[in-house]
Design a binder for these strands. Structure first.
Lengths: 200, 200
DNA sequence: CTCAGATTTTGTACAACGTACAATTACTGT
DNA sequence: ACAGTAATTGTACGTTGTACAAAATCTGAG
């Protein structure tokens, strides 16, 4: 048993997974979802395309990491303050999540294109879950509600992204779209609140 | 003025746009969303890849046509019967739409990947609109509600599709997922109904 | 009936993609 | 110093969308 797995030989890594994800994120911002290519990322970090495969098994893994990256920015524990009304907290979280995703065009497609089961995605889900528990939903219904809220947020982002010009990387989100998003979210929360009230 | 645009010369078309869309649909069923390629479609109808470009300007147009095809199957005027309760009609329409999309794996990604503005998509929207009018929503709110319902249906389909094994073309939709879909739809409809009641 | 003109189909080709494979390089513990 | 190991690269293959020009095929006018 010689292999201690500590300080093992080999040249130093010139990159990190983080550097690759940063490059991918920049590429997503500059060139849109289709602009995120292995070759592009490699070029941006100044390395041969194959080098990326030292850090990620394949492109799908890079995209998953990218999504995780985006979700990580949202999950401050800012929404767990039970003093604030639960509806306000959910609205704030939903709006922030949406804004984060819309800030990176094509992120919606990426999010919906991969089973997002990373830790940050879980964390967002857990945050939502705790808020809904505060709202008075029993665990089963709260889990359902998390799913429905996810669907609404991701669906809305995807639909909004789909209606934009894919050739242009940047976009302006109109107030009209935001109002529509809030309106739908309000109806959904109304339904959830009524359900919680009926079953307590 | 010689060009009457009628019976103009040239060899007969060996294909039709419909034949191409049929091939694309079959490919979608057999190989999943990534299996729908121009070259694959062309091979399936027995023609050189370039021939497809006589009928469609590019691949995106083919995919749009494909989505239209799917939506066309749903839009029977079966849901316009004002005698039935509006909630039942919306649920039936939503479930059918979802079933149709889930029957073709990857259709969700296609739907969300293109601004679906074709006539069949409009028709589905109009059907929803009329049902919501029957429900007592004024035109403005009804339009909002159509958007939200679209988001919910498309979002749910996309999320469900994203969680499946992309390598396998077929899938079994569990009852559990269907129940979850209905539960969310119910909450949404609760919220919409309450809103309609508050503003009449 | 012929034939010019219009149009579909094809052959060929290119750039870009993901990524497999083997060789090369750069390191570390013994 | 050196052997072993890991990171990186060079090269390459197969696949994709699609541009371009040549070829094949049809129709209406004469």
């Amino acid at each position: 048993m010689v292999d201690t797995r500590r300080g093992r030989p080999g040249p130093r890594r010139t990159l990190s997974e983080q550097a690759i994800l940063d490059a991918a994120l920049a590429l997503l911002a500059e060139r849109g979802a289709d602009g995120v290519t292995i070759r592009g990322v490699a070029a941006r970090v100044g390395v041969a395309p194959n080098a990326v495969y030292t850090y990620f098994p394949d492109k799908a893994a890079v995209l998953e990491g990218l999504v995780e990256q985006l979700l990580g920015r949202v999950n401050d524990n800012r929404f767990t303050d039970a003093a604030l009304p639960w509806r306000d907290r959910i609205q704030a979280l939903a709006l922030e999540l949406r804004a984060e995703l819309l800030a990176h065009p094509g992120a919606g497609r990426l999010l919906l294109g991969s089973p997002r089961v990373g830790p940050n995605a879980m964390a967002v889900g857990d945050t939502l879950l705790s808020i809904l528990a505060d709202a008075g939903l029993d665990p089963g219904n709260a889990a359902n509600a998390v799913y429905v809220l996810n669907v609404h947020i991701l669906g809305a982002v995807a639909v909004e992204v789909a209606t934009l010009d894919h050739t242009r990387p940047t976009r302006t989100v109109t107030d009209l779209e935001t109002d529509l998003f809030r309106w739908g979210l309000d109806r959904l929360l109304d339904g959830l609140a009524a359900h919680a009230a009926n079953h307590d």
